[in-house]
Structures are given as structure tokens and as C-alpha cells.
């Protein structure tokens, strides 16, 4: 139920903020449209833990700033590699073992890996991540690297 309410709130804020009209007529039309859209979506049965992960919302607020900082650091690292007069790269595919239990957790971990430049997820089989690294020396391939631990904590007990 909280997922359906969450979807409605997200759609309605999009409607209100993107239209920029706040007169009662428009707000009523928006409420009707959002209700119809949410009804159809709920009837399709696709409002689940994967499409509306509202249970992660609180912990995500702690994770996202850390991720942004991590992205900044690896950006600087890759920029230094690119701008160096002599290209010193050692591209290689490494394998990670991820400790997330749910598909959603793995999805978040894989996307976090891809978002930080210098590493990029190319495939997932079970809990085995295939990651292409620009320079193997920059990668902590052990299971308890910090990102893996943080995503597992973000995923929580619900798994």
C-alpha cells in the first residue's frame, strides 16, 4: 500500500512541478490522471519492491552522498590518467563476489560500480560480478570492499 501511495505522490509531484500551474482546475486534472495511471499500473501488478523501493528511501539518503563523493574521487583519478602525457592504463576484466541477497541490491551495486568511472559492470551471473577496470591497481576486488558493504547495508534485512 505504501508503494502505491508513493507512486501516486511521485507522479503527482512530477505533474505539479513540471506543469508549473497551481490553479485548482489543473490540480484536479492532475489528481485524476495520476489516480488513473496508478490504478492501471497496480492492476498490471508491477508495483513491487523492485519498481518502488520505498523501503530503501531512508537509508538511501545516507548512501547517495557517499556515492557522490566516491564518484568525484574516481573522476579525478580517471582524469589524471587521461591527461597524463604518457597513457598508463592496465585494462582488465576482474571478478567480484557480491554479498547482496536480492536482485535489487545487486542492481544497485552494479549501477554504482558503473557510475564510478574507471570500473564498469559487464555482466552478472548469480553473485559473480564481471567488472571491466581501466586500471586494475585502482580496484579493490575483495568481497568486503567498502561499496559492497555499504550496498548490503542499504539493502537491509528485507533482502
Amino acid at each position: 500500500m505504501s508503494r502505491i501511495a508513493g507512486l501516486w505522490i511521485v507522479l503527482y509531484s512530477l505533474w505539479a512541478l513540471l506543469s508549473g500551474h497551481f490553479d485548482p482546475l489543473f490540480l484536479t486534472f492532475g489528481a485524476g490522471t495520476c489516480t488513473a495511471a496508478v490504478y492501471v499500473t497496480a492492476r498490471m501488478g508491477i508495483v513491487d519492491a523492485q519498481s518502488m523501493p520505498v523501503h530503501l528511501a531512508g537509508r538511501a539518503l545516507g548512501y547517495l552522498p557517499w556515492l557522490a563523493w566516491e564518484i568525484l574521487k574516481s573522476n579525478v583519478r580517471v582524469a589524471r590518467v587521461i591527461l597524463a602525457p604518457k597513457l598508463r592504463i592496465n585494462p582488465q576484466i576482474v571478478h567480484f563476489r557480491a554479498s547482496q541477497r536480492s536482485d535489487l541490491g545487486r542492481f544497485i551495486y552494479a549501477n554504482s560500480i558503473t557510475l564510478t568511472p574507471g570500473t564498469l559492470t559487464t555482466g552478472i551471473v548469480g553473485d559473480d560480478f564481471e567488472v571491466h577496470a581501466l586500471d586494475v591497481a585502482h580496484v579493490d576486488g575483495s568481497e568486503n570492499n567498502e561499496m559492497n558493504r555499504r550496498v548490503t547495508a542499504l539493502e537491509g534485512e528485507a533482502g
Partner: peptide, 19 residues
């Protein structure tokens, strides 16, 4: 432009997309 193959270029492309 500078990096040698598709995968390494993807890292550079990710840089523009994120930061």
C-alpha cells in the same frame, strides 16, 4: 579520442555523464 578500445572509452564517456 585518446583511449585505445571501446571499453576504456566507456570509462571516459562515463566521466562526462556523471561529473
Amino acid at each position: 579520442l585518446r583511449l585505445p578500445d571501446v571499453f576504456t572509452r566507456m570509462h571516459a564517456a562515463g566521466m562526462t555523464d556523471t561529473m
